[in-house]
Design a protein around this nucleic acid. Structure first.
Lengths: 203, 203
DNA sequence: GCCCAGATGTTGACATTGTCAACACCGAAA
DNA sequence: TTTCGGTGTTGACAATGTCAACATCTGGGC
């Protein structure tokens, strides 16, 4: 890389701080000074703090998606193993970059905060969607496919979050991969073998 | 109720503010003045802001659990429908008290912030555990039961969170109950019909 | 009745931090 | 050369969590 622009430097410094100490300890002022400029300079490049955070989060999502596509490269493996690869890439962001995961998926920034971030989210979801679709080639009703994507993605995200917030009573952590793997297994088996349930919302 | 103590008043006011405008807009100062005392008084009853938030969150969890136990009262229904009732009670907190849900489950306060909150979380998890256990009376290995609880709870939580953060691309919202219902269905079918998966963490 | 300790409440003060305003510089376009 | 938009800087401010010092009140022991 050559002369890195100030804007890029701000994002880089911010990303570094987040990865090291978490988003809670991050201030605009520090980002500025650590990037070699003054405290107010970030405002020349980002509307406010949330927009800067969104830029950092987008970078995190790009990395995650890069892992996903890398894992899918070569195009080999069963649809199921490919789906698992995507899930694992997601969990890899959690285990290897916990603070960044927290920023991206912890609700600190709204996914709609920035068009860029929104695009990233859509692209990631599209990857998942493709993988799920490959597992159920017989599905023609797109709303069913959509439903399964949501359920599966929600399950993975939720399990990751239990781990992230250390909210599993009596757990010493570390089992996320197993838990998520079990979730994927059970869901796939359930969808393969089970009938589509009778519609009726219990109330 | 008679003379409500100051501490209880603080929690009540805080709860009200959270329910009306969300936790982000809540300040200790406002809680104090709205409760009829001065700004610093909350510190006489709560160590710091997080502890006060934890007290509010605990109240939210109590409500949720009250709904759960109410739904279970009478002891009738299939184990599966009882499990669904618990899940629905959880989602009810989301749909009817979104801001409170955000406080309780959005990671604003750590579940271990306070012994009280921790106890609430454990009690809620115990309720779920009992319901899951009833669905699989044949399970003797407690670690398997635990795994299924985690997966199921994670799935529900994750789906709720997707909705909470409006992170489902192209969704107009409202489908959480269906999504969670589908998740429970698929998981139950998968666990009933499917074999326990061969252990092997894909890496 | 008197005194003291602890609980409770109040105001003053401070540091942090996001953010607005005003000013300075600088290169390119007119 | 003048002007203007982009970039950067410092001053200032408001909001807010929190510490410290002071006031009040209340109950128990002498």
């Amino acid at each position: 890389m050559q002369h890195e622009g100030t804007k890029a430097a701000l994002v880089r410094v911010g990303l570094q701080i987040v990865e090291e100490r978490g988003v809670a300890t991050l201030t605009l002022r520090e980002i500025g000074t650590q990037a070699g400029v003054s405290r107010q300079t970030p405002y020349r490049h980002f509307e406010n703090k949330e927009v800067l955070l969104a830029a950092i989060a987008a970078e995190g999502m790009r990395r995650e998606r890069a892992w996903m596509t890398t894992a899918l490269q070569g195009g080999v493996g069963s649809p199921e193993s490919r789906l698992r690869a995507i899930v694992n890439a997601h969990l890899r962001l959690l285990s290897q970059h916990r603070f960044l995961y927290e920023l991206v998926y912890g609700g600190i920034v709204s996914k709609s905060a920035t068009p860029e971030l929104q695009q990233e989210a859509i692209a990631t979801f599209a990857l998942l969607r493709g993988a799920v679709q490959a597992c159920f080639p017989e599905i023609i009703d797109l709303s069913v496919l959509r439903l399964r994507c949501i359920v599966l993605w929600g399950a993975v995200r939720g399990i990751a979050e239990l781990e992230m917030r250390s909210q599993v009573p009596g757990s010493v952590g570390g089992g996320v991969n197993d838990w998520a793997g079990e979730a994927v297994s059970a869901l796939l088996v359930g969808w393969k073998k089970g009938p589509t349930r009778p519609r009726k919302t219990t109330r």
